[in-house]
Nucleic acid binder design. Sequence first.
DNA 1: CCAAGTTAGTTGCACAGAACAACGAAGTAT
DNA 2: ATACTTCGTTGTTCTGTGCAACTAACTTGG
Lengths: 226, 226
Amino acid sequence: MNAPGTPARHQMPFTRLEIAVLGLVGDELNVLLARRAAAPHAGRWALPGGALRIDLDTSLDDAARRVMRERLGLDLPFLRQLCAAGGPTRDPRAPWALSVVYRAVVSADRIAPAAGKRIEALAWRPVADAMTGSGLAFDHGELIARAVTATRLDIERLDMPEGILPDSFTLGELQTLCERLLGRRLDKSSFRRKLADRRLVEPVAGALRTGANRPAQIYRRVCDTP
Amino acid sequence: MNAPGTPARHQMPFTRLEIAVLGLVGDELNVLLARRAAAPHAGRWALPGGALRIDLDTSLDDAARRVMRERLGLDLPFLRQLCAAGGPTRDPRAPWALSVVYRAVVSADRIAPAAGKRIEALAWRPVADAMTGSGLAFDHGELIARAVTATRLDIERLDMPEGILPDSFTLGELQTLCERLLGRRLDKSSFRRKLADRRLVEPVAGALRTGANRPAQIYRRVCDTP
DNA sequence: CCAAGTTAGTTGCACAGAACAACGAAGTAT
DNA sequence: ATACTTCGTTGTTCTGTGCAACTAACTTGG
């Protein structure tokens, strides 16, 4: 096994990481897109991403986090690998391009993604538009659709991504958050029953959210591994 | 965007594809392993795999299929991407190794995986053993565990992988097939109800499987896209 | 020929989870 | 005080699933 299959005998693909950051803008699920400053696809919108740096990165997860930090000015622990895509025609800059795609969910209003290195502009765009792929660079429309599907599947199972939940919240707030992420209404009693059965949240003793109406009990995430 | 992020400016990882082929040997779910002929991990068992060839492959799916053909002498259309893993210490032959892992399911008894190029020996091994990772090269124990989990999830949803279903079958045969893949018994009436509700199979008019007991209606997969 | 055994295929029932609907409770606004 | 909103709970219904029983059809062993 020292003939082929050995490093450096074959040319390797241009390897990048792309990050699909989802977040709520108002009621709607949006995705964070970067306007490409240079060719290819100059002026078009694409997922923010960057090249793998084998001198810096100790794993793919680590690389994705670095790219997110550099490009978006965000250092969030919640990144999940979505898929990998590759081919000779994906990126005209290289004879063969491979992208490992990650996804994340953040509270869009709590972060200010400063446009990082080499990004002309950053903008939230509704996933309903972006998923059609209209005007997006590369195959990023398809990738966004996959990220949304996978994320909504997580939410359906009440597997809430970190980075989206506040420290404390009322059950009503949690429900409307999920509803906006899913894009559909949920049943109040079922939602609460599931939360209680699976012990996903616990009430903060004596803490109430007061406002215009009846005060609501404040909850927080229950720590799984004490 | 012509400075960094551009091909050939950074060194790229040694990129390979690994194939987790699952199949039934007797009643038990097994995985196809290759004995490594050379260092690293010489003599140990590993998932069959091979380097990405950017001069031959038109996509990752295509590359996985080529590797499967070359290494195992199998040309099966059913391959699903599982995940990608990478890091500087995964493979001592390269400063940074990236593996894109695919999974497949085949009827173990219907194929004779001829040991292909550069493989000393091929053998089926029960996943129960392999998943513990004992004695496996690289991080392949973990990868096998993931492939089994993902495949069983497919079967639970009755999303039967191609390559495992015969052209025609009785409902009893289909059920025992699923039971062996899942490693647990299923309820007959629930199983049939689900098949009927979702219109996954259709009876072949007049075709019966006769044998030692009462003859059984023969079914076939319903074609989704006519 | 008959009884026993095995698999095929269906039916009824119990239970769990979820959707749907309604209700009282507790606050604010007018 | 009354209307209105959100909170929180409690029923009722519906659906899907698991469990069990039953009949049907065939082979095999006496």
